[in-house]
Every structure is written in structure tokens, then in C-alpha cells.
């Protein structure tokens, strides 16, 4: 066990997998000589060389296309999108190609492909660089969407993703790279498609993932001061979605708040709330409440931007509403 930042955990996962398997390689903008625009691949170029840590032109369609094609030949590419906002420039390759090619040709093509993309707001980057469009990608069967909330899960899920034979979008959050946590050393794997309890409680179920976990843990501390014990379920994977721990917790607490950084409309919270009503209607003691980003393109001004993003106080208020 080591105490690592999220950045170090992600970096370690890739480093270990590249040491183990020569078919694993990285491609993306500034991943090599520069060392990664978020420094996640720092040191990789010098150690693994330019064939395995490939700097690309600023051309997202080419990055994802090259990753798809090389994956079809049996390689295990890790394509880095500098931010998830740039994924829209490669939308066809991600949703029309990566998510479809296995099915559409009767299972002939296998795509062991990981797309790493960093998202989230709160860094005064303006509307085009601050989005959390996770739900958009989780919409498509054929793609798997993973988004860890702790350094340990980041390492374990990424290692599993690299070894997986399916196309996986691995979404990181830029404001969480410095978050520290205990991370198991060596071959630590976390299965994809399994939700987990990050904090046990009995009074209310908070369902969240990624940045929402950090927000929810802070809110839970506040609530605990008043004797309210929130149970936090971390989805970790959006597709395939594991509702097991959510429903189990809800049947115990009968109340739920869903926390996500993305917009509320048509979002992750809408999906979770709907499934709770479908699968546990008889256990509902209060309407499910969603905490999410306000419905606005994120502004540059710090105070304006923060006012649009979900805060721990919003979660505390939501919990008080359902109790």
C-alpha cells in the first residue's frame, strides 16, 4: 500500500501494464516529449521510447481512428484526449465506430481500446473546456464508460480497462489529480461494471461517482455532525451500470440523493432516479432528489462558475429535503 495522488495512481497503472505487455502503447497530443499536458505520462517517453509513447498531431479523429484500427490488429492502445471536450471532434470515431464495430460485423473485430479523457469544470477554462458530458457517452451500447472517484479505483479500474477486450472510455476529473489515497502496490485490479459503498450509513443513500464522490464525502461529514449517517454508493462505471448496491442501500434508507457534476437534464441522475423508481418503488419514502450542475454553459468568472457547480452545501440541503 502506498499513499498516491490520483495522477500517480493512473500513471502507475499505465506504467505497470506497459512494462508487462509490449502491445500496450500510448498515443495522443503531447503525451510524449512534453510528458502529458496534465503530466500523467511524465517520464514515459524517455523510458518506453517514441514508438510506444506516440505524440500525435492535434487531430482527435486521427487519434481515435488510429487507436481503433491498431486495436483491431491486436494492439492495446491507450488514446489520450487532452480533454473530454475534444472528444466531440472525434464523436464519429467513438460512437459510430468504436462502439459499433464488434457488433456490426457479427463479432469479428475485437477492440481492446482505452480512451482516457479528462473532464470537469471549476478551473476557469470557460464553457468549451469545462464540460462533464459523461452521460452522453454512457448512452451508447457497445461502449463502456468508467470514471473513478479514488486513486485506488483509478489504478485498479485502469489496469482492468487496459487488459479488457472492449472499447472503454476512461473519464478522469482534472480537479482530482491531486487527491491522495491509499493505493495497493503491484497487480491491483478492480472489475469494471461494479458499484461499491464508499461510506456506510443508514439514514440516506447518496449515489454518485468521480468528482461527486469528493463532494458527497464532504457533505456526509457535515451531516454526521448532526447525527445523520449518509451511505455513499460510488457507481465507478456508468455503462454497464451496476444498480445492485444502490437498490440494496435504498431498501435500507428509503431515501436517495444523486450527485453528479454534469447537467441535471437527461443526466446520470435522471437514469439512476428512474431505475430506483422502477426497481424499488415500494421502498420510496421521499422523492429522489438530484444535485447537479446548473443548466448553463460554464462561465469564466470564478464566482459565477462556482455558483453553477454542485457544492457540498447543495448535497447537505438535498439530504435535509429527503429526510
Amino acid at each position: 500500500m502506498s499513499r498516491l495522488t490520483m495522477r500517480e495512481a493512473i500513471s502507475q497503472a499505465m506504467w505497470e501494464e506497459m512494462e508487462k505487455d509490449p502491445s500496450v502503447f500510448i498515443l495522443g497530443e503531447e503525451v510524449g516529449v512534453w510528458g502529458g499536458s496534465y503530466a500523467v505520462t511524465k517520464g514515459f517517453y524517455d523510458h518506453f521510447g517514441g514508438e510506444r509513447v506516440r505524440d500525435t498531431p492535434i487531430a482527435e479523429t486521427a487519434i481515435i481512428g488510429a487507436a481503433i484500427g491498431s486495436a483491431m490488429t491486436g494492439l492495446r492502445p491507450i488514446a489520450e484526449l487532452m480533454t473530454i471536450n475534444f472528444a466531440f471532434a472525434a464523436m464519429d470515431q467513438i460512437v459510430n465506430q468504436a462502439a459499433k464495430l464488434h457488433y456490426m460485423f457479427g463479432g469479428q473485430f475485437v477492440l481492446p481500446l482505452v480512451i482516457r479523457a479528462v473532464g470537469g469544470g471549476g478551473r476557469q477554462l470557460g464553457a468549451t473546456h469545462s464540460q462533464t458530458p459523461d452521460a452522453v457517452f454512457a448512452h451508447f451500447p457497445g461502449l463502456k464508460v468508467v470514471s473513478p472517484g479514488t486513486p485506488a479505483d483509478a489504478k485498479g479500474l485502469l489496469k482492468t480497462a487496459i487488459r479488457s477486450n472492449d472499447p472503454i472510455l476512461f473519464i478522469e476529473n482534472a480537479t482530482m489529480y491531486q487527491v491522495r489515497g491509499e493505493v495497493p502496490d503491484g497487480d491491483y485490479l478492480v472489475p469494471i461494471g461494479i458499484s461499491c459503498i464508499q461510506r456506510p450509513g443508514k439514514d440516506v443513500t447518496i449515489v454518485t461517482y468521480s468528482k461527486g464522490l469528493e463532494i458527497s464525502l464532504k457533505a456526509a461529514e457535515e451531516l454526521a455532525k448532526d447525527g445523520i449517517e449518509a451511505e455513499i454508493v460510488d457507481l465507478r462505471t456508468l455503462r454497464p451500470l451496476d444498480m445492485g448496491p444502490v437498490i440494496e442501500s435504498f431498501k435500507k434508507t428509503n431515501r436517495a440523493v444523486i450527485v453528479e457534476e454534469g447537467w441535471k437534464s437527461f443526466g446520470v441522475g435522471a437514469e439512476i432516479a428512474s431505475r430506483i423508481y422502477e426497481q424499488a418503488f415500494d421502498y420510496v419514502d421521499a422523492p429522489v432528489v438530484r444535485v447537479a450542475q446548473k443548466e448553463v454553459p460554464l462561465p469564466y468568472n470564478r464566482a459565477l462558475e462556482q455558483s453553477a457547480l454542485p457544492q457540498p452545501s447543495d448535497v447537505v440541503a438535498a439530504v435535509r429535503e429527503v429526510l
Partner: peptide, 24 residues
Amino acid sequence: WGGHAIVGAHLPIAAGLALGDKYA
């Protein structure tokens, strides 16, 4: 490696297929 129905979308994939051979 397929007939592909989105105009031009298989060209980046072709680059990837070629990368696979070159890499190996």
C-alpha cells in the same frame, strides 16, 4: 476489414490498421 458506411470515417481506422502492422 469492412465496408464502412460513414463517408470517410474508415480512413483514420485504415491508418490504425497500418500502424498495427508497422508497430509489430
